[in-house]
Design a protein around this nucleic acid. Sequence first.
RNA 1: GCCUCUUUAGCUCAGUUGGUUAGAGCGUCGGACUGUUAAUCCGCAGGUCCUUGGUUCGAGCCCAAGAAGGGGCGCCA
Length: 477
Amino acid sequence: MKRIRVIEIIQTEPKNQNVLVKGWVRSFRSNRFIALNDGSTINNIQLVIDFENFPEDQIRRITVGSCIAAQGELIPSQGSGQKSEVRVVQFEILGDADPGIYPLQPKKHSLEFLREIAHLRFRTNTFGSIFRIRHHVAFAIHRFFHERGFYYLHSPVITASDAEGAGEMFHVTSLDLSRIPFNDQKEVEYKKDFFGRPANLTVSGQLEAELAAMALSQVYTFGPTFRAENSNTTRHLAEFWMIEPEVAFNDIFDNMDLAEDMLKYVIGKVMTECTDDLKFLLDREEEEQKSKPQQERNEMNLLQRLQFCLDHQFERVSYTDAIEILRNSNPNKKGKFQYAVESWGTDLQSEHERYLVEKHYKKPVILFNYPKDIKAFYMRQNDDGKTVAAMDILFPGIGEIVGGSQREERYDRLASRMKEMHIPTEEMYWYLDTRRFGSCPHAGFGLGFERLMLFITGMGNIRDVIPFPRYPGYAEF
RNA sequence: GCCUCUUUAGCUCAGUUGGUUAGAGCGUCGGACUGUUAAUCCGCAGGUCCUUGGUUCGAGCCCAAGAAGGGGCGCCA
């Protein structure tokens, strides 16, 4: 007999039909009622077991966390909590869970505790919801680009270029670190290493995506990204997933449209496809809000925030205008900012970004045309000679979720900018070649997948929206 | 990397001005009950008060160093 998934069984009209279900026990009440979950949905199926008809030693093995297979009749429930239930005819314990040492109890656990047992936290309602949603978000991203005629490009995970300038990199080597070969100058002899040269884990697939966009027109990457930065925050990981579309013939404003459309498409899809899980996370957040002082509570709940994001155009503000708004803002005048907004040309602090998004505009903001000196070498230089066609999308509660730009397509401008910023042009010949042969205007951006997950789930810590987080000093599981 | 807070039972947390034998809820275990919804009721067990050192007649509580965890900042997605 074939097993039926819980998500199917709870949608099936109960007509005393024979069914087989398999899953993990969430609770066992009155020695009679089993709440069984198989991860196909946040909802459980209730199994009713007449303990009088089964050996006691078998009944005693039905414990929270144990895995069972049960066969019986699907009948209308006599209780009020559920539409149907399975009257168990026979069952089998597939895996015991010793209640004396199984760490999950049918009660609320702290996220910090669950992070320490990340191998088991999938079995909680919260993390079940998060990782079902994570799948739907990833899938929606692929669908969005596929429907628009983009090609999914697999950019390399190992790169030999250390000139991408997006942060500290993890070295990749097959050398024996206790016996590193040095030359006479005490330099590492990379010729003896696996690739014959230094290699690193990628910090971005953008440069490779640009190469492909110069032929396929519209591509995107979606893969793991690695930063060896010593970042200890609720918004950073050493290993995270990034989506990087790159589009030939797009300018900075097409780029904004694409990013905004994509975010709205994905959020819309999740709202229609993950209603049960979002409802659970909504209730969870509401409960959490109750224990906070009025001042720190969210003005909108999770679903309202998602809907608001769909209903409103993201505010587009130039860096120059943003500086003026911040300079004239109340917190700046009253000296409330930790970093006073000084002159044009300095980078915005996260408190400034938060003010713009959460207090001034109260919606997602796209900041664009940043001073060239605080941005990367590949961004297109504007005619004013001071700014580049960069854009960042800032979300409430999260900050920067997207960073992108129109790329510098003019060979001379790019090469001279690289020299100014000490980027080795010889090593990057392949990147410059795209500007030598059939160059064209193009643009792209990077979307932090886990940061989008934070917004969609309402979770507060990025370590809770990725199955196995990696961060400084931590690579467990 | 910097700042800050926390660390007491399996989990979540109380613990007064430094004072005898360190508590609660939930969970486990034993029992009762059996159409429950994190079932309910009764009972038992469970502690290196993070570690080390110091102050003191006396430290869970005060001081110092270290460890682990949370939050903020920086770097960024």
